[in-house]
């Protein structure tokens, strides 16, 4: 412990606050990550099945979704966050704090993730879909049994990529008072010039990413045949 304190002299005093920030970051990652994962899967699948030649072709829905994703993706996150404050108030009752950050984090992640899912599913050989239709399977069975099931390695890979970018935007959520490691690094590392505190947040984030990638790679390895 004393070695740690000699490398990070401010840790002794700020350690408690760092833990609170870590908890806030994990909370943002877990809650918005989980919701964004399912929403992204849903919209990604929707893009694939409604596009031209898809199993539930619906060009109006496809075009609307496609354009909406492009528009939201082109708004810088920090601006999106501010724009979504009223929406967040309407949905979760607050526009600030950790809870107030969820809506923005999800909105900042889902379009990106949906696109990634779309490209993973588009890579699947259409022959498999055709074969499943020939076997008498309907859309729901094809989506779950073929599209998603066959794409687990690809979905895992893009989930890891998205997760890393989600960590990036949680750091910005500090701007609306959500706290977290990013906010901690700005306050102490930048404003107070405690460089050691900047470094320790970087190390913690690296550890989080490493754990996620380790698990992800394990899943990819187990499911690729």
């Amino acid at each position: 412990m004393s070695i740690l304190y000699s490398i990070f002299p401010n840790l002794d005093r700020l350690g408690g606050e760092l833990l609170v920030s870590l908890r806030q970051t994990l909370q943002m990652l877990f809650v918005s990550g989980t919701i964004a994962f399912f929403l992204g899967l849903f919209f990604g699948v929707l893009l694939i099945v409604t596009r031209k030649g898809g199993i539930l072709q619906n060009l109006v829905l496809y075009t609307a979704l496609d354009k909406a994703i492009d528009v939201i993706r082109s708004i810088p996150f920090i601006i999106l966050m501010v724009l979504l404050i009223p929406v967040s108030r309407a949905i979760v009752g607050t526009g600030s704090g950790v809870t107030g950050s969820y809506v923005a984090l999800i909105a900042g992640t889902v379009p990106f993730f949906s696109r990634q899912i779309e490209s993973v599913l588009a890579d699947l050989d259409y022959g498999l879909i055709e074969a499943s239709e020939a076997m008498g399977f309907g859309p729901a069975e094809i989506i779950f049994g073929v599209y998603l099931r066959e794409s687990i390695p690809g979905i895992t890979r893009v989930t890891m990529i998205t997760f890393v970018s989600l960590i990036g935007i949680t750091a910005m959520a500090g701007a609306i008072g959500a706290g977290g490691l990013g906010d901690f690094a700005i306050r102490y590392g930048y404003q107070m010039r405690y460089t050691d505190m900047s470094w320790i947040t970087v190390i913690i984030i690296l550890i989080i990413i490493s754990i996620i990638q380790f698990i992800g790679n394990l899943i990819v390895k187990k499911t690729t045949h």
């Binding site: 050989d125 022959g127 074969a131 076997m135 008498g136 099931r149 066959e150 687990i152």
Partner: peptide, 18 residues
């Protein structure tokens, strides 16, 4: 339902890789 009684095979086999 009718398709279930009509088997089909393809040039590129179309087996599920997973």
């Amino acid at each position: 339902e009718v398709r279930r009684k009509i088997g089909m095979i393809f040039q590129h086999f179309n087996l599920l890789r997973s």
